[in-house]
């Protein structure tokens, strides 16, 4: 475990959190706007998948 690995770990957490908060927030906002209830779940899923894809692109695909 070098220091670079630790940096990657913290960046992975930041990506996942950003994905969930950003797209979950967008889903929540659209729910509020349209009077629906399920868009926040879709937002979470989109955020999670896109954050995973970004992690794959940045750290796993060499």
């Amino acid at each position: 475990m070098s220091s670079k690995d630790e940096g990657a770990m913290f960046t992975i957490i930041a990506y996942l959190l950003a994905g969930l908060l950003l797209w979950g927030g967008v889903g929540m906002f659209l729910d509020h706007l349209l009077g629906l209830h399920f868009l926040v779940v879709i937002g979470f899923l989109v955020g999670l998948v896109s954050a995973m894809y970004l992690i794959y692109l940045r750290f796993i695909r060499q």
Partner: peptide, 20 residues
């Protein structure tokens, strides 16, 4: 290393999902 990061990301996603 990529495998460890993949496993870490998958596990951590659940914890953060719980938080949110």
């Amino acid at each position: 290393q990529p495998l460890a990061f993949l496993g870490f990301a998958l596990a951590e996603a659940l914890a953060l999902l719980g938080l949110v």
